[in-house]
Design a protein around this nucleic acid. Structure first.
Ligand SMILES: NC(=O)c1ccc[n+]([C@@H]2O[C@H](COP(=O)([O-])OP(=O)(O)OC[C@H]3O[C@@H](n4cnc5c(N)ncnc54)[C@H](O)[C@@H]3O)[C@@H](O)[C@H]2O)c1
Ligand SMILES: NC(=O)c1ccc[n+]([C@@H]2O[C@H](COP(=O)([O-])OP(=O)(O)OC[C@H]3O[C@@H](n4cnc5c(N)ncnc54)[C@H](O)[C@@H]3O)[C@@H](O)[C@H]2O)c1
Lengths: 223, 223
DNA sequence: CGCATTTTGTTCTCGCGTTCACAAACTCCT
DNA sequence: AGGAGTTTGTGAACGCGAGAACAAAATGCG
């Protein structure tokens, strides 16, 4: 009998499911915008681009929020998923490295609407300091620790060149950041307990290129 | 006895392996830059952030390019992986939607160095036409088909708003594009045979948020 | 009220991917 | 040359996730 006090939602949601919950959330938002108030697992699965069986199993990890013979209430399910993910309130986020990509990220309006709030933009380049991007000042990288503690920032975004990324990550972790989204093409070393997710454009393109090549080869051999 | 003529590299590389090959390629490039000419699976695995056992198995799908008791020749392995992925020559790429993100992508120098070449930047907004980004003209979206056929473009990048993405994808497919990298937060419907990969910042952040919340809850319950 | 219909939640099976463990192969030293 | 030490490539075990299939629950109609 371990410390499992408030068993509102069953813990241990599989990682693959966690990765799909945001997709369901987005699909539900779209349905809601279209004026749909109820949907079946088939409808939602189609909107999310997954198999309906998989969708139902995913949702079953959160609880039993549908009605048999009827389907799911869009708003209710939306809230339940948002609560499970933890985006019923806004998360403060810092972005480090305000170059080409950093500017685009700072200007990205989808942040706010999806549960995140950019509290600071940091860059090592003095020439960038004082500039405003989307209403937020670009400040020195050395302000990191102060900002993180002040706002209770848990999530940091790295959009610096690759050679700076590890150092930025180290300082983020030292300041109290526990989750990092890394756009720099580098493998970050972080202590256990810190989460890193990476987005790498080149990798995505190379994966696509592999499949294009494979299809071309298959055709050549068949032809 | 099917049409398996040139069995240079064993086909049927698992998808999970394909997704890691670009990471190995990048790690090898870093090692080469540092002057390393030979490395063990342990070294390379550390640089790529994976288990050495997994690395060896991944490489074994491509062939037997190492030497027991010695390790891998960095340049040789690099070439073999590049060949398997198909990035020994450059792939022409078009980017559609030259807003905040599109500009950042167009300015991204990593494209060229990793096997890709931006042959066109397209946007529906007349005000953007004629602008040059990283030496490439922004042209009307209607030029898509001509450009795709002219350059033999197989890979397209979508960085338009979500509501335009499906239309852009449809036109890309109609023009002959077979692989799409989608930055718009939408599920694209494409015919079978067309590959879509998506990059969604909000989803990545929400996954991170889930884990932050989970850690916080675990601490609260334990404390 | 009972029955047909719809749709969820769950069980079961299968396949893929990860990891361990070890034999095979190579080098180096004596 | 032979043996000790390394390191690769792979066979086998295991665990997780995907998908099919079905029982349970709700609705609506006669
Ligand atoms: N631009 C893209 O579309 C794109 C795509 C994929 C990946 N990336 C990657 O994202 C990263 C950023 O790309 P970019 O095009 O914006 O580059 P950039 O050179 O335009 O911007 C990098 C910014 O980081 C700042 N910086 C450098 N070192 C720093 C440090 N130690 N601390 C804080 N700030 C620092 C620089 O002053 C600069 O403003 C790169 O690693 C790049 O490979 C970019
Ligand atoms: N900016 C970011 O960091 C970021 C991050 C994640 C996702 N995204 C997504 O990427 C997409 C682009 O974001 P953005 O900030 O660059 O938006 P943006 O509005 O700055 O740019 C969109 C561009 O697409 C063009 N466009 C619109 N409809 C078109 C059509 N039918 N054909 C061709 N071009 C068309 C517009 O003229 C505009 O130039 C959005 O879907 C956004 O949600 C952006």
């Amino acid at each position: 009998m371990t410390a499992r006090s408030s068993a509102e939602s069953a813990r241990d949601v599989p990682e693959a499911t966690v990765a799909r919950l945001p997709v369901y959330l987005r699909a539900l938002a779209t349905l809601a915008d279209e004026g749909t108030s109820t949907c079946s697992s088939e409808d939602l699965a189609a909107a999310a681009g997954v198999n309906s069986s998989k969708l139902r199993k995913d949702l079953s990890y959160l609880g039993s929020y549908g009605t048999r013979g009827v389907g799911y209430d869009v708003d209710y399910l939306r809230y339940q998923i948002a609560r499970e993910i933890g985006v019923t309130q806004d998360w403060p986020v810092v972005i480090v490295g305000i170059g080409n990509l950093g500017h685009a990220l700072a200007n990205f309006s989808g942040f706010r609407s999806r549960g995140f709030r950019v509290v600071a933009l940091l860059d090592a380049d003095r020439d960038r300091h004082g500039e405003q991007v989307a209403g937020v000042d670009v400040r020195p990288f050395s302000d990191l620790e102060q900002i993180v503690t002040e706002h209770g920032v848990a999530i940091g975004v790295i959009s610096t060149p690759a050679q700076a990324a590890q150092d930025v990550a180290d300082r983020m972790v030292a300041s109290g950041v526990t989750s990092i989204l890394n756009f720099a093409p580098t493998v970050l070393q972080v202590p256990s307990g810190v989460d890193v997710r990476k987005v790498d454009l080149s990798i995505e393109l190379q994966i696509l290129a592999y499949h294009v090549q494979r299809k071309a080869q298959a055709e050549a051999e068949a032809g």
